[in-house]
Design a protein around this nucleic acid. Structure first.
Lengths: 249, 249
DNA sequence: AGGAGTTTGTGAACGTGAGAACAAAATCGA
DNA sequence: TCGATTTTGTTCTCACGTTCACAAACTCCT
């Protein structure tokens, strides 16, 4: 998914390695969580926090948190903990939130609307610079403090605002075409809310958020819980009866 | 996360093991994707598909897909492939989509609105039976074909409709309280859209969808790409200059 | 100054997941 | 009926991620 830059030069220094190889995906995915936790602590006027404190607030194991942070550098003080403000800045810089990221949203239906108004973006360095829809009837409509623009102006918008990140909130059928157009216009990161698998050239990152998939995963576990809690025999029957030998513990 | 039911009885049969241990999390997360792929093929009138076909459509490796499917049982035919309709049913049954899942959404702001109107839920066996909001002014308002109900009626709603899955779309500050109330009322699976870490008792599953985190992950990769593409020297300077030795390949 | 107490950073062990590779099982044509 | 061909199901290996456990490094108190 990430542009594969295999290790080219071999040299000492963990810091150097980080620049070369980057941070493990799993860690990257947690950094925003830590950032949010630190911001919350900062707002409560807390200046220093141990890995244990942070881990509890973030809902993770403290060893994992320490290891995650160690990929960024050695920003803690043994016997003391981490300086909240300092660590917050370091994580923000690492993720790239010390700069401003212009974002364009394509497809202003129910979800697009909600995303356009979502305050969580603006407060974290993301600026929705334009809303685009393929439906000409919607063009001109005001959402939040933006007007919906014509799909034909996509290229112009992306050039003008130097947009690198695009959000797709169209129906599934339109998603691949929109994706292709975004990529052609120079977008290299896409957040996809459409229920479709997007194919993109190398060097373009795609992340997908699929609401119904999340619910389905919950449903699977929910079903298992229901089965485990007494319905085992009935389930075996419904299942076709392979081996109905309930171990009566 | 999942209720830990360690292997109690030891017996042969992969099918038996599946029931005991369940399917790997990573596989569970992909089953809905396969399901969608199969539905799409079915609608195009395709009766049979090889693992290669399915894998391509789903955007995964074919070996991975075969291994995933093998956890459910042996539903393919060597030399032929999988019967689309049959496999679709088996996956649906495994996930628990042959039954209907009543869902309640709490917090009908921008996002709650969008979720309430989201057609992707209904089409996959999830039925939004009630919308709840803490703001008394919103109560009675119509969204889609439902009316927003008072927060105080939460318990009653959950009992009446036998709701097992709750969706939290409130501001972060209210999320934990709502979560506690949902759990107290009998909900055992929660999909959380609020930017907060929820703590729940054992036996309750939580999945979170955080839009701003997804964007931040993209931003990290985007920044790396920008750095890799020429800005390396400038970045090293800004970084504090540890060792500015660019390997000129 | 020195010892007791904290807390980080990391090495090592373990578990899970991904992908290559191949034997087993099916179809098809002669 | 038999060999050629296709495609599944599974084994094996490797990479990645998590957790434990502990030495190193810091503070604080006497």
């Amino acid at each position: 998914m990430t542009s594969s830059t295999p290790s080219r030069s071999r040299r000492n220094g963990a810091r150097e390695d980080r620049v070369e190889r980057g941070i493990p995906e799993a860690t990257v995915a947690r950094l925003p969580l830590y950032l949010r936790t630190l911001t919350a602590l900062s707002e409560r006027g807390i200046a220093t926090a141990s890995s244990e404190d942070l881990a509890t607030s973030a809902g993770v194991n403290s060893a994992k948190l320490r290891k995650d942070l160690s990929y960024l550098g050695s920003y803690g003080t043994r016997g003391v903990g981490y300086d909240v403000e300092y660590l917050r800045y370091q994580i923000a810089r690492e993720i790239g939130l010390t700069q401003d990221w212009p974002v364009v949203i394509v497809g202003i239906g129910n979800l697009g609307h909600a995303l356009a108004n979502y305050s969580g973006f603006a407060s974290r360095g993301f600026r929705v610079v334009s809303l685009v829809d393929t439906d000409p009837k919607r063009v001109g409509e005001t959402v939040g403090d933006l007007q919906i623009e014509a799909y034909a102006t996509l290229q112009q918008i992306i050039d003008e605002h130097r947009v690198a990140i695009g959000v797709i909130a169209t129906p599934a059928g339109a998603a691949q075409q929109v994706c292709d157009d975004l990529v052609a216009a120079g977008v290299t990161s896409i957040l996809n809310f459409a229920a479709a698998v997007l194919s993109v050239p190398d060097g373009v990152d795609v992340r997908k958020v699929d609401l119904s998939i999340e619910l389905q995963i919950l449903a699977y576990h929910e079903q298992r819980k229901a089965l485990a809690a007494g319905g085992a025999a009935a389930a075996a029957l419904e299942d076709g009866v392979e081996a109905l030998e309930v171990d009566t513990a």
